[in-house]
């Protein structure tokens, strides 16, 4: 990526927002979101109370870890697809998600250009999906569960990082073959999602299956050139990013009430 892109005003805003977001998350988001640990315990206790204690035998430790890691990945990616889609489909939520789509240039830091309200929703999604899966697996296998990792990193994150997932927010056009793009979202497919023309396509996080099944997929070969950023000019400063979505959604609510 050229120096011009790294120093673009949109990229510089991303860097500033990244620092600010650290404090917002620590002070506002984390205390508000219930943790995956609490959901895990709640799920586990619910299962024990209602279906009695059980323990599944016959699987090795590595088999259980592999099943857990896969289930967690699939459930997490599925919930991520739907929350992302909902952020696009419900007008009030789209006002908040626009923040992310307002970037004129993409750098890996753009990943963090997320409004705190969206952070909050993704925090709940994470706690629910990871907590329920962990609770069910602990109910079935107890202390046998664990995450398969490579060098301390979740194996799926590791593999997708090698496949270029960290470059989804960049101008580097990594495309997969069509067959593979039915299964996994290529970095370029996500860049298409950030285009002003196809923002409501390719919602998937890592898997493209959900887009394929629910009819929102678009392949790399179908889009030759991309212009990034939705047509919104009101996200030029940090305060714009933080407060404009509230004002816009308040106005939207006013319109609904007037109708």
């Amino acid at each position: 990526m050229s120096k011009k892109l790294w120093l673009h005003s949109s990229a510089i805003l991303d860097y500033k927002y990244y620092v600010l977001a650290i404090f917002i998350k620590a002070l506002l988001i984390i205390p508000l979101v219930f943790s995956a640990k609490e959901v895990t315990l709640f799920t586990y206790e619910y299962l024990v109370e209602n279906f009695e204690y059980t323990r599944v035998h016959g699987f090795s430790h590595i088999q259980v870890m592999f099943m857990f890691t896969c289930t967690l990945f699939i459930v997490s990616d599925f919930s991520r697809y739907w929350l992302h889609r909902i952020m696009h489909s419900i007008p009030i939520l789209w006002e908040f998600h626009k923040v992310h789509h307002s970037a004129k240039v993409l750098t890996p830091i753009t990943f963090y250009r997320i409004h705190p309200i969206e952070n909050l929703l993704f925090g709940f999604r994470y706690a629910l999906s990871a907590g329920v899966v962990s609770g069910v697996f602990i109910y079935l296998f107890g202390a046998m569960i664990g995450v398969v990792d490579i060098l301390g990193v979740n194996i799926f994150l590791f593999i997708f990082s090698l496949a270029g997932s960290n470059l989804r927010h960049s101008h580097i056009k990594i495309k997969y073959h069509n067959v593979l793009e039915n299964l996994f979202i290529s970095p370029y497919q996500h860049q298409i999602h950030h285009s002003s023309k196809y923002p409501h396509k390719n919602y998937g996080g890592y898997l493209a299956i959900w887009d394929k099944v629910f009819g929102t997929i678009i392949y790399s070969k179908e889009v030759k050139t991309i212009r990034f950023g939705v047509a919104v000019e009101s996200f030029q400063t940090l305060s714009n990013i933080l407060f404009t979505p509230f004002i816009s959604s308040y106005k939207l609510l006013g319109k609904y009430n007037a109708k």
Binding site: A36, Y44, E118, A130, S134
Partner: peptide
């Protein structure tokens, strides 16, 4: 015993921690 187990496993901290798209 269960709380300790859940904390010991630390499964929730090793999961995909992406918080946006």
């Amino acid at each position: 015993y269960n709380i300790t187990l859940i904390e010991k496993l630390q499964v929730t901290s090793k999961i995909l921690d992406a918080d946006g798209d």
